[in-house]
Design a binder for these strands. Structure first.
Lengths: 207, 207
DNA sequence: CTATAGTTTCAGTACCTTTTGAAACTTAAG
DNA sequence: CTTAAGTTTCAAAAGGTACTGAAACTATAG
């Protein structure tokens, strides 16, 4: 993977010829090593994001800010990830909207910096809350709606194999599940680290 | 949503003219109502699937089999969802591979039928296990790999603001989180309904 | 006010995923 | 063996999503 020329590894085009580094301050061996590590992490995080329905670049930007652990500006992100200004800007904004990165003004600096939340538990908590709201709640609502539509109209026939009965049962089963899942999600919200570790402790003890 | 002509609602092209129903046995009012309900559910489930990185059609097929609650054959699925044979076939296979629907041979029938698992908890359990394996495990492995790469080489300088130190801390934080999450997922596997409800009871009591 | 540094937006393009439809394949029965 | 019913595969096309680059915009300093 990092076979050929480890010097200019910067996450994008590995097959590229090692450009003579236009205005490069050289970078020590340790710095190179660190960069490789960070890039490995970023790449993997991007891949995972994708399979969970999060666009790869957004996940990568977040991974970058998280793993580097210091504020970066738009241009830093662009250069490091080889993406355009527009892309960078949009995704940084989206991440801010999610609340898992923060804008940061430096005294005497014109441009803005961005910083990831530090606490992984808190980040997860925020994401869980938001996805619950956006994705589980609507399903629950739809189920309720379906149950109403199936209400008392055809309830007379209680024959065990009646298709209506079956669908009723399925809806009920799903509702049951979603309600409980929702509750669990809710426990996470606002509890962040403390709450979560408590949850986890309880869980692990119970088994 | 179900404004105009509720008769031929079959989930696909709502703007289409109501074709005189080529070989239709007419369908009672109750049957129509049931179909509407099922379609509503299917549609929503498909949408949700998409935001979780599952292709919409696959989610819809699963929703169909689940909500109808009786075995359907490939052609049933094709007709009901207005999708091609190839598409239907591929996705049915994929769902079987996941293990959340089952193949079913009917005596004296040539073609195959498919049936959803009934127990929502069991389905979730299966999905959770598989996604853990496919998506969390690789991340954990990458983190370990990163930690090794960052091993003892540059460990000398323990200055609090050393970039290497920061990245080390971030990796550790993420590892911590992923390990625990993994554990929780593991509790679900093979425990299905009984295990899960137990988990949930424990959780809800603790808060 | 103008000049400058930086950010956001967006139409067009590139890329990737999904779907189709038809051909190849499989299986069961005669 | 042949025929028929059904299933799977896959190249090509459609459909979507994400990215770019440049123009429009905003804010700050002089």
């Amino acid at each position: 993977m990092n076979a050929t020329n480890p010097v200019l590894t910067d996450l994008a085009d590995e097959a590229e010829v090692a450009v003579p580094a236009v205005k490069a301050k050289p970078m020590t061996a340790v710095e190179q090593r660190l960069r490789e590590v960070q890039d490995t992490f970023i790449r993997r995080w991007g891949e995972m994001g994708q399979t969970w329905g999060i666009n790869r670049t957004m996940a990568e930007i977040h991974a970058l800010l998280f793993i580097v652990g210091m504020p970066l500006c738009t241009d830093d992100v662009m250069e490091r990830l080889h993406i355009s200004r527009g892309n960078s800007s949009m995704n940084l904004r989206a991440l801010c909207d999610w609340g898992i990165i923060k804008r940061l003004h430096k005294r005497g600096e014109r441009r803005e910096f961005f910083e990831s939340l530090t606490d992984v538990w808190e980040m997860f908590s925020i994401i869980a809350a938001e996805r619950k709201r956006r994705e589980m709640d609507p399903v629950l609502e739809t189920i309720k709606q379906c149950q109403e539509m199936l209400g008392e109209q055809a309830l007379g026939k209680a024959a065990k194999l009646d298709p209506v009965q079956i669908t009723r049962q399925r809806l009920a089963g799903m509702e049951d599940f979603m309600k409980v899942t929702n509750k669990v999600f809710q426990q996470f919200v606002g509890n962040a680290k403390s709450g979560l570790t408590r949850v986890v402790k309880v869980l692990l003890k119970a088994f």
